[in-house]
């Protein structure tokens, strides 16, 4: 134990304040006194290092990803659903109700936004419908169902420049491009960035005067993902018609409840400008 000059801390006093020092809880005067003591006293400095090491090792041991991507997605979807309607969990009935919904889905696909489905029922429906298409098409379909079909859209839409505020500025021009290349009767419902099942999307949804719901869904390519041609690939599942194309870095989908020909025409009208725009982003 060292000999202390007048007004300096003794080792006993320093030890009593050591945790406060390491936790950043000392005021300026105490901090100066402690720093002076620890700088002079090897034994207290070693003790500070040991205690700091314990905290560091504990943090290292515990600070690992704790939440699985599926759980994160579950919470996000729950908030999204809550944001649109005050829904209540009905866990005990979810499985049975989902089965009923899936059974009826062929005829009620576009009324889902008006049903008060629980999160689990919606997830079950998304899983069911996405299993009917190829892996590459599933990427787009999941977001369309999650983010457009399950929503109840208002009869009036805000102006496009208001709608696009939920997009990063660099992506906003794509909403105008799409609007310019589809029939004027289509109303833009949303243009935003979202996440579904751990994957990020750029999503624009529109509705025709006949009530057809159309999405342009885009997602960054992951390794190996490609439509393997330069044209437009089509698939269908129940009432959903899908047309997929790609830019240098993104997969893109036009998904709707129109007939195959109409959906294809819409995709052809959008694909050129969208490809040019996204490829110019680099």
């Amino acid at each position: 134990m060292k000999t202390n000059p007048p007004n300096a801390l003794s080792c006993e006093q320093a030890l009593a304040r050591l945790d406060l020092l390491l936790d950043g809880e000392l005021d300026d005067a105490e901090l100066l006194a402690m720093e002076a003591h620890v700088a002079e006293c090897g034994r207290c400095r070693a003790e500070a290092e040991r205690r700091d090491q314990l905290r560091a090792k504990l943090r290292q041991a515990l600070r690992k990803p704790a939440a699985a991507p599926e759980f994160e997605q579950r919470v996000q979807t729950m908030i999204r659903m809550e944001a649109r309607r005050g829904f209540r969990f009905q866990w005990q009935y979810a499985a049975a109700a989902a089965a009923v919904v899936i059974g009826l889905s062929g005829t009620v696909a576009y009324q889902l936004g008006h049903l008060r489905l629980s999160y689990q029922q919606q997830e079950a429906y998304v899983t069911s419908i996405s299993e009917k298409v190829s892996n590459i098409m599933r990427v787009g379909l999941i977001d369309h169902v999650h983010c457009a079909v399950f929503k109840k859209w208002p009869k009036q839409s805000p102006p496009l420049d208001e709608i696009v505020k939920e997009m990063e500025p660099k992506y906003r021009p794509v909403a105008t491009l799409v609007k310019q290349n589809i029939p004027a009767s289509y109303r833009v419902l949303t243009a935003h960035q979202c996440t579904a099942r751990g994957r990020k999307y750029i999503h624009m949804a529109m509705m025709s005067t006949e009530g057809n719901l159309v999405s342009l869904v885009m997602s960054e390519k992951r390794t190996g993902e490609t439509f393997a041609n330069n044209g437009i690939r089509q698939e269908s599942a129940q009432r959903f018609r899908m047309a997929g194309f790609e830019t240098a870095g993104f997969l893109a989908y036009v998904i709707s409840d129109m007939d195959e020909k109409q959906n294809q025409q819409l995709a052809e009208a959008i694909a050129g400008p969208v490809k040019t725009f996204f490829n110019s982003l680099g």
Binding site: L15, A16, R43, R50, R51, L54, L58, A61, L62
Partner: peptide, 25 residues
């Protein structure tokens, strides 16, 4: 509080794994 913090402690062995820390906590 004061009494219990006014003591030197033993070093943490290098060999303890992250799982050991979690189990101890």
């Amino acid at each position: 509080y004061t009494e219990a913090t006014a003591a030197y402690t033993a070093p943490i062995p290098e060999h303890l794994t992250d799982e050991d820390f979690v189990a101890a906590l």
